[in-house]
Amino acid sequence: MYAFTYHRPTTVRQAANLLAKHEDAKLLAGGHSLIPVMKLRLASPPVLIDLSKVEGLSGIELKGRSIVIGAMTRHNDVARSKELQEHLPALAEVPAAIGDPHVRHVGTIGGSVANNDPNADYPAACLGLGATIVTSKRKIAADDFFTGMFSTALEPDEIITKISFPIAKKAAYQKFKHPASGFALVGVFVSKRASDIRVAVTGAGANGVFRVKAFEEALAQRFTPKSLDGLSIKPDGLNSDIHASAEYRAHLVGVLARRAVADAVKR
């Protein structure tokens, strides 16, 4: 690991100022993506800004017809949240499928969303529910937030503070785990909220999470797994590696979407 200095700000403003001041600084949330790549010398931020001491970044709240989750809320706390179990259990399924219990004790929703790993689970939930990402500067719709593999609409000195998820009546997440890493080989989040039907896919796309319009349109006719029968996505542009070819991933998207819809309608 390369040498670095670190800061432990206590307010979002301090953290944002530090971020603005140090061009190559990295925010440290749970650190379970950043620290491993630093250890392998694949990342070398000269400055770390640890968010763990910043007040007010954790917690899960019901606000009207939305669930608002603080950026530093740990996966385990989201997975076990009573509010979510009651109002949006599908969202609780997402962190419950991340990593392992030890990782879930430390990893955060904000860290996962900001990192936008193309195989991560939370981006699918954000896009699949039409979440709003709230930052130190503004509110960004999930549809505008995820801009490509490991890339987001965040500006260099912008910090995610919370994420607001609209409550969907019917929603579910289906994940096919990568047998080695535990990331999503493919993950599909579906939701139905009044007029808004969403199918978001992670793990499969070379540019990260994406929506499947054809599936959404079919489900808009009738929100049932049968609506997706015979539908598939093209393997062109999907990830291909030793564990899953683009064809296999394309196939899994269809299978998991049907299963997710089946789970969702049971709710």
């Binding site: 650190g31 379970h32 385990n76 030890h102 990782v103 004790h105 430390v106």
Partner: peptide, 19 residues
């Protein structure tokens, strides 16, 4: 490398001592 930090199991290899 799992240890308990404030009563929760965590991976001590993925955490700086100062954390």
């Amino acid at each position: 490398c799992v240890v308990h930090i404030d009563g929760k199991a965590m991976k001590s290899c993925t955490m700086f001592a100062w954390q």
